[in-house]
Design a protein around this nucleic acid. Structure first.
Lengths: 338, 338
DNA sequence: CTCGGTTAGTAAACCGGTTTACACGTGCAA
DNA sequence: TTGCACGTGTAAACCGGTTTACTAACCGAG
């Protein structure tokens, strides 16, 4: 591998000159430029990235910390972040933490160790303060989609409450009165906000919330499956169901299929996220779409601004959107029950 | 940030000693060890990774080059590779190439530039020689799942032909005689092998292959959708369909739904890959399962051996497995047609 | 007492860029 | 003729580890 020194010797200049020319921090007369260009070409010179990074202290890489790359929501997000990063000359490291706090902390350490210049973090387990304490010691960190309370870093979330309100309202408008709710873990901002949206929509419509039809506590499909099994075994099952994430929806749909419940005839169903899966199912699932692409791009742009010491918006809320498909209809039993 | 020098001064030794002690390349008496440990703790010393990498010329990172992280097959693979890499102290860069040859070449350049120590590559576009020429110039590269002809690097593939044979045989055993085949791009080893498996199974059963029921050329869902639309419009449509990848299956299923074809009653269906999606659909899709986890782990292990100049198996074929679900039954029209 | 071997280290080179501070020559104005 | 600005560069420090080659001190054996 040719070094800067080799190029400099061939071009008859010093390596300082070559370095500064290649980094555009110097203007040179055409003849010198030509000599350097020729020398670079002759040696097929490519700068040694390890040396450059050591010298500048920059890695031109960022980390993306997500719970699980296999889940389509996070894979979509990773794709968007990667694309935007690539556009700015950055590469990304993806850490799948499997919702493991220690792996999240390890990712923060890698930031500290100059492994990466910045971090985009997306957690989905409630913090007892451990994560927050680790985060406040770090710079160049952006939180996406889920909050970590008590840290002052740029945050980009979606309109969870409004989305949940809209979803619930959609079921109500279709004529549903008994509506089940599947929520994520307690202590997570997005979980809470989605529940609040559900609650407000129900209250605004003058409907009681039946506590037996509300299940909160986990994002796992298993959790949703069990909850749904309970729902359909009730004397008066709900006619509509709102799963507050697609991952919950998977479990819920398996539970409904197992119980032989037909969608949307016997049960209307709406979800939150709108990953591509939903469109392929029968019936195609009506859902609140999170702007994953925008989340990823804005996430990188914000981190980029942060790394370059540009001013940054402390909190952004991105809008969500109702995507109507085929899983919500009028309740079949409406005439009988009301 | 404390440096090795700071620690050395505090411990009253030279930085050589601290470095060698921390890297376990020296044995020291207990008292000295204690002094160094205390100094490390006092300074909260963490080695500067950029300096270490520059010094050793190793990045302790590898690249994973795949067509698209959003596709579940590749996301699963990435997850397996990442896990195995993590276990060996390596981190991974993921490059989604979007099947773009230039992005594949760029990833190879990053290997050259010391961006990563090694590369696991998985391509899905036929090579005209460009990729092969770029690959032969590189070291520490492993090919996964798809061949690039003419390069001598370790390769790990699955039993494509056997899998396709098994899938076709499964339809034949269920009583199907008119079987449609959806294949990937021409010029790809996996495409060809899967077609050959189909062909052999048909011949072995004494069945003619109707050229109108064979469509090869792309892995895109759109392609499959169009092919299926043509199939169902034929006077005598096939009763069974073999999609040689899950991504094709998605398009095929959309096409079948659009045409109002009921599965498995009107059409038996089998796919190749068995990503988690298939289990969630109605009916759940019978498929040939690729050993994604094993592919990823063995891929990393092979690269690891390669990077450490250990002997490496030049070609490995991993077995596939038939996962029976609900999308294959006896042909409904069997009595009438035969 | 001297030689050889072991223990416990160390000085300095090295990796290949980037960056700071400065030098030299030339032309133009005062 | 001096002085200054400007164009065209350069020498050397610097980043923080790793690694090579070496040494001083001490112990035991001959």
């Amino acid at each position: 591998m040719a070094t800067l020194q080799d190029v400099a010797l061939t071009a008859g200049v010093s390596k300082t000159t070559v370095s500064r020319y290649l980094n555009k921090s110097i203007e040179l007369p055409a003849t010198t430029v030509a000599r350097i260009d020729a020398a670079v070409a002759k040696h097929e010179y490519r700068p040694n990235l390890l040396a450059r990074r050591f010298s500048t202290g920059k890695t031109e890489a960022i980390g993306l910390v997500i719970p699980e790359i296999r889940e389509p929501f996070f894979a979509e997000l990773a794709s968007a972040v990667e694309d935007e990063a690539d556009r700015h000359g950055y590469t990304i490291f993806i850490s799948s933490t499997r919702s493991d706090r220690n792996r999240e902390l390890a990712a923060l350490d890698r930031l500290h160790d100059h492994h990466v210049d910045g971090l985009i973090m997306l957690t989905n387990t409630a913090d007892n303060g451990t994560l927050a304490r680790a985060i406040v010691k770090r710079k160049n960190l952006v939180l996406l989609d889920e909050d970590v309370p008590g840290v002052r870093v740029p945050k980009i979330f979606v309109e969870n409450e409004e989305g949940a309100h809209c979803a619930t309202r959609h079921l109500i408008d279709a004529g549903h009165r008994r509506i089940g709710f599947l929520g994520g873990p307690q202590g997570l901002m997005s979980s809470t906000e989605r529940y609040v949206g559900f609650e407000h929509a129900m209250k605004a419509a003058g409907l009681e919330i039946d506590a037996n039809l509300v299940r909160r506590g986990s994002f796992s499909p298993e959790f949703a499956r069990n909850a749904v099994s309970d729902f359909v075994a009730m004397p008066r099952p709900p006619t509509g169901l709102f799963a507050s994430s697609d991952y919950l929806a998977i479990g819920a749909l398996l539970g409904l299929r197992q119980a032989g419940i037909e969608l949307p005839g016997q049960m209307s169903f709406i979800s939150f996220d709108d990953t591509p899966l939903g469109a392929l199912l029968t019936p195609a699932i009506t859902a609140i779409r999170q702007p994953i692409e925008a989340l990823g791009r804005l996430g990188f742009q914000t981190l980029y601004a942060l790394m370059n010491r540009k001013p940054v918006v402390p909190l952004t809320r991105l809008p969500v959107e109702l995507i109507e498909r085929q899983s919500v209809t009028k309740p079949r039993t409406r005439g009988k029950l009301i």
